[in-house]
C-alpha cells in the first residue's frame, strides 16, 4: 500500500507542476504581449525613445524570467528566439528603424501568444 501513496504524491506533483505552468507561465507570457502592445502604442504616439526604454526593460525582465523557471517548461530554442527578438527590437528602436521593429515584434508577439495558448486548458489543445 506504500506504493499507492507514492503514486498519489507523484500525481499531485505532476498536477501542481501543470497548474503552475498554466497559471504562472501563461500569465507571464501575457505580460510580455502587453509590453509589446504598449511599446507599439508608444511608437504610434511618436514616443520612440520611451518605447526603446520599455523594450529594454521587457528584454531584461524576460531574460531573468527565462533563466529562472521558464526553461523548465518551454522549448529552450523558442525562449532563446524570443529573447534575441526582444534584443533586436530594442536595437531597431534605438536606431529608429521602426519598420524592422514592427516585423520582429509581430513574430515575437505570435510566439508569445503561442506560448500562452499552449499551456491553457481547452479542447483545441487537448485534441
Amino acid at each position: 500500500m506504500k506504493r499507492i501513496y507514492i503514486a498519489i504524491a507523484l500525481l499531485a506533483i505532476s498536477i501542481a507542476s501543470g497548474v503552475f505552468e498554466t497559471v504562472s507561465v501563461t500569465q507571464n507570457s501575457q505580460k510580455y504581449i502587453d509590453y509589446i502592445d504598449e511599446i507599439n502604442k508608444k511608437i504610434d504616439d511618436k514616443e520612440v525613445k520611451n518605447a526603446a526604454v520599455l523594450c529594454k526593460k521587457a528584454d531584461e525582465e524576460f531574460e531573468d524570467m527565462s533563466k529562472n523557471y521558464m526553461f523548465y517548461y518551454y522549448m529552450h530554442k523558442n525562449l532563446e528566439e524570443i529573447e534575441s527578438n526582444l534584443s533586436s527590437m530594442y536595437e531597431y528602436l534605438r536606431n529608429d528603424e521602426v519598420h524592422d521593429y514592427y516585423a520582429t515584434s509581430a513574430i515575437t508577439r505570435r510566439k508569445l501568444e503561442s506560448m500562452r495558448d499552449t499551456g491553457s486548458v481547452n479542447l483545441q489543445n487537448i485534441l
Partner: peptide, 15 residues
C-alpha cells in the same frame, strides 16, 4: 512529468 503520470496511473489502476 509524463513518466510520473503514467507510473502513478498504473499504480492507482493496479490498486
Amino acid at each position: 512529468i509524463p513518466t510520473l503520470v503514467l507510473v502513478s496511473c498504473e499504480i492507482i489502476l493496479s490498486v
